[in-house]
Amino acid sequence: MTTVHPAYAQLRRVTDIASVMLENNPGMMTLDGTNTWILRAPGSDEFVVVDPGDNDEEHLQRVAGVGAVALVLITHRHFDHTGGVSRFHELTSAPVRSVSPEFLRGSGTTLVDGELIEVAGLRLRIVATPGHTADSVSIVIENEGSVLTGDTILGRGTTVLDDSDGDLGDYLASLRALIELGDGRTVLPGHGPELPDLQEISKHYLAHREERLDQVRAALVSLGDSASVRDVVEHVYSDVDPKLWPVAEKSVNVQLAYLRR
């Protein structure tokens, strides 16, 4: 029987190249848990791991146990994707590459927008997609066209923009860049199940963001420019469970910063 998401503690094959190991760390921000992606080209004995997860020894041991890891890539800085970087490097000795220098390990170097990484029979193109965080990237598996999106696009729901370094203008530009990659590309997200068409979901995300932005504008007209973030959240996110309002405040902070620029 073919396994489907969520399937904890097992390697679930998603495409000819990409398999996922779902970490058992569900939560408000992680949904069902963090997806650790494990890439293997046909005929290769080596793997590339994307986002080893947080500092969960059982999860890291399971991922390390798949075989020889040639390279580790990080989509963005959040702890649920990077907390286990040091321990995973100890387990595998594989170099770790990211945008942020703090996660580099071994011979790993900083990721550069547009670069093509050729390793273990894989051709992986880095696409800068900031907005969720300043250091967010997506990774195109050129061998088959699928795209690892980190938290820029999720398998369900929508992305929360980090109000410490997230930027709505950057995020809207990133969504447009993903749309331009074309249709028919499988989405391999940082959380949630895979999706069949990157262009379609990116257009949906873009429309949703623009709708929310219009709602925030309208809220400021109604409430006044001095309205608090919580006032705007209660006005705009009345359709969302109030338990999620503290999370929505992060996105509203980013939206207000965008509008006030």
Rank of each mutant, 00 (worst) to 15 (best):
V4G: 02
Y8F: 15
Y8Q: 11
R12M: 15
R13H: 13
R13K: 15
T15D: 14
T15M: 09
T15G: 09
D16T: 14
D16H: 03
A18T: 13
A18P: 05
A18Y: 05
S19F: 04
M21D: 13
L22F: 03
M28Q: 11
M29A: 04
G33M: 05
T34C: 00
I38A: 01
I38N: 05
I38P: 02
L39K: 01
P42Q: 13
D45E: 15
V50R: 00
D54M: 09
N55K: 07
D56C: 04
E58H: 05
H59W: 01
H59L: 09
H59R: 03
V63Q: 13
G67F: 08
G67E: 08
A68F: 00
V69A: 11
V72N: 14
V72L: 11
L73N: 08
H76P: 12
H76W: 01
R77Q: 07
H78E: 12
F79A: 12
R87H: 12
T92L: 03
S93H: 10
A94K: 05
P95H: 02
R97A: 15
S98R: 01
V99H: 03
E102C: 14
E102W: 09
F103D: 12
S107F: 00
T110R: 10
L111N: 07
D113C: 04
E115L: 04
L116N: 11
V119I: 14
V119L: 03
A120T: 12
A120H: 02
L124R: 06
L124T: 07
A128M: 07
T129W: 00
T129H: 00
T129P: 06
P130C: 06
S136H: 08
S136Y: 00
S136Q: 09
S138F: 10
V140I: 14
I141P: 01
E142A: 12
V147R: 01
G150V: 06
G150A: 07
G150Y: 07
D151E: 09
I153W: 04
D162S: 11
D163G: 00
D165G: 10
G166C: 08
D167C: 06
G169I: 06
D170S: 15
L175E: 14
A177D: 11
I179V: 15
E180F: 01
G182H: 02
G182N: 02
D183Q: 06
T186M: 12
P189G: 03
P189R: 09
P189L: 10
H191E: 07
G192T: 13
L198I: 11
S202H: 10
L206A: 12
R209N: 15
E210S: 05
A219Q: 02
L220K: 08
S222D: 13
S222N: 12
S226I: 00
S228P: 04
R230T: 14
H235V: 02
D239T: 08
V247R: 09
E249M: 14
S251K: 13
N253F: 00
Q255G: 13
L256M: 09
L259M: 06
L259G: 10
R260Y: 07
